[in-house]
Amino acid sequence: MLHEITLKINGEEYQVAVKSHHTLLTVLREQLGITSPKRGCENGECGACTVILDGKPVNSCMVLAVEADGSTIETTEGLAKDGNLHPLQEAFIEHNAVQCGFCTPGMLMSAKALLDFNPHPTEEDIKVALAGNLCRCTGYYRIIEAVKDAAVKMEAEK
């Protein structure tokens, strides 16, 4: 059965007919072509599909699309604004916090949700916020440095 739902994604409003059993991840990827949220496990275990839903980071593989009806969603595609990279994106590049890149969009969204809520995170805060995002390449150190650095730069820009 199809359900007509409305999603506000990266500032754009989408109306889309979705199947009852399809997850938000499936709808984003397969129906809307928003592919930065990745499929890593489809079980809420790896965090590669993290998006920000109404201000909170969620595993989009664990949310049914119909549950997200009317909500506001942020993905990595919407991070850069007015032709400028988000400070998190810049910091990820500068600190070589990217290797294979598959976990990167999910990491960025978890990190953004953290900084939106807590602009001065401690290292421990960062580790808690990113605990659900698995990375097999980097060993995480550069990711922590990048988030710290972005926090400082965002504060300075205010």
Binding site: S36, E77, L79, L85, F92, I93, V98
Partner: peptide, 11 residues
């Protein structure tokens, strides 16, 4: 810097 980083942080 890595030549592939930009693409990877923008999705």
């Amino acid at each position: 810097p890595r030549v592939d980083a930009f693409e990877k942080v923008t999705g």
